[in-house]
Write a protein that binds this DNA or RNA. Sequence first.
DNA 1: CGACAATTTCAATGATCGTTGAATCATGGT
DNA 2: ACCATGATTCAACGATCATTGAAATTGTCG
Lengths: 120, 120
Amino acid sequence: MSEVMKQQPFHPEIEDVLPADVFAALGDPIRLGILVSLAAFDEVDKVRCGSFTELASPSLLSYHFAKLREAGITRVRAEGTARFISLRREEFDRRFPGLLDSVIETARRDPSVPRISNLG
Amino acid sequence: MSEVMKQQPFHPEIEDVLPADVFAALGDPIRLGILVSLAAFDEVDKVRCGSFTELASPSLLSYHFAKLREAGITRVRAEGTARFISLRREEFDRRFPGLLDSVIETARRDPSVPRISNLG
DNA sequence: CGACAATTTCAATGATCGTTGAATCATGGT
DNA sequence: ACCATGATTCAACGATCATTGAAATTGTCG
């Protein structure tokens, strides 16, 4: 009954994001796996955070989601009991033109990066 | 008099380099500064390691050089008492096409990345 | 040889990282 | 109200990180 609304997670202003923080966030195979899986799925903003449990445990996923989110790479939206994760495509591309594409291509091509088969 | 030759530093085979390790190596402002400064200087293989002392102390520089080297990004050649650092351009571009260019552009455009004025 | 210069190595530090498992929180359904 | 579900938070752990300053290394030159 309380009027307390569900707090959406914190997202940095894209101008405040520094290159070194972006690269640090990309410096982990699980996070690269989240990134390539997200990029491979075409229905934006329809991917539940829980879809990634074959990459890591729920609690570890939450940690990695936070890293990506704090680096300005992803956005997380809470809806009911679920959470949806998506790329901050336009903003990020404006801030760092061309970077995300070559990062995704690099990760996509490499077998050391884990993947989610059936997302969504 | 001994026949012991000066050991050149270790460089990984470029095929053994993993994307996550590359990004981890890029996740530091000093190392991004080394990278953009190297990229801005046209005379390849003519840059002394000691040219970067305005970015950090010699001992800290040595640490960061090792990180970049172990990630397959740079090459270090010992010559006499000096050491020369350079990008592993062709190899790296073959392994991760397009990546280095957009990383350098990203770092070059950002004022948070330190720079060396007069290299060489 | 001995002094010097360029650079690395080593030991130590506090901070952050990736991971685990248990506890907590929020929401929706019965 | 209770319970189940989806997900985060917390405390703990060992590992690695960035940094410092002192010591060691390597090569050059007198």
